Simulated scan of single mutants.
Amino acid sequence: MKLLLLFGDTAVGKMTVGQELARITDLRLFHNHASIETVLEVFGYYHVRAVDRIREAVFEEFARTDEYGLIFTFMWAFDEPSNEEYVEWICSFFRKAHAEIYYVELIASQNERLKRNRSANRLEHKPSKRNVARSEKMLLSDDLAHRFVSNEGELTYENYLRIDNEHLSAAETARAIKERFMLS
């Protein structure tokens, strides 16, 4: 079993790269908005506990299967110690299953992310982002409030890859991940 954590700033392309990676490998994709959008539709607001419980159920049950592996996308605020704890919490389900864990960080400039924030694929799969003005305001606000890009040498995981995907397509980025970690 494998767990591939795909993280980066808002609109960096996590879901889109995850979709491509799932297409060219036997990994399954669980992007962070799969749980967020469900909770927003049911509760009408971001209910943290509900999102976490959905994710916990998926992680726990998936780790018990014979599936090849799971891609999970999320934002990691490196200035928030609780985010590292959250990553360890996710990994704990898969460590029990003796999974190989891969960490892939995507980075791109704010200007590029603002362009990607309006992409058809993003808007199709993330209804909460369809109010583009509000989504852009949140992107800019998040950039001011937190650090979503790791510092050089901050992440020392054995299976860690940092990709500047500003000028790469999702397919190119997915192929680079597949080749680096020899995923099937």
Rank of each mutant, 00 (worst) to 15 (best):
M1H: 07
K2G: 02
L5A: 05
L6V: 07
D9C: 14
G13P: 06
K14C: 07
K14W: 04
E20C: 13
I24F: 00
I24N: 00
D26V: 02
D26R: 10
L27C: 06
F30A: 09
H31N: 06
H31A: 02
A34Q: 07
I36Y: 02
I36F: 05
E37A: 05
T38F: 08
V39M: 05
V42S: 05
G44M: 06
Y45C: 15
Y45V: 12
Y46R: 12
V48T: 10
A50C: 06
V51R: 00
V51D: 00
R53D: 13
R55Q: 14
R55S: 06
F59D: 08
E67C: 14
Y68M: 07
Y68D: 14
T73Q: 02
T73R: 01
F74N: 15
F74C: 09
W76L: 12
A77D: 13
D79E: 10
S82W: 10
E84G: 15
E85T: 03
E85G: 02
S92G: 09
F94V: 06
H98A: 13
E100K: 03
E100R: 05
Y102R: 02
Y102T: 04
Y103S: 03
Y103F: 14
V104M: 03
V104D: 01
V104A: 02
V104Y: 01
I107H: 03
S109N: 11
Q110K: 15
K115Y: 10
R118Q: 15
A120F: 11
N121R: 14
R122Y: 10
L123I: 10
E124P: 02
K126S: 14
S128G: 04
N131Y: 15
N131K: 11
N131D: 13
S135M: 07
E136R: 10
K137W: 10
L144V: 13
A145L: 08
F148G: 08
S150Q: 03
N151H: 12
G153S: 07
E154Q: 13
E158L: 12
N159V: 10
N159R: 08
L161D: 07
H167P: 11
A171H: 08
R175Q: 11
A176D: 06
A176T: 12
A176W: 03
E179M: 06
F181I: 03
L183F: 15
S184A: 15
S184R: 09
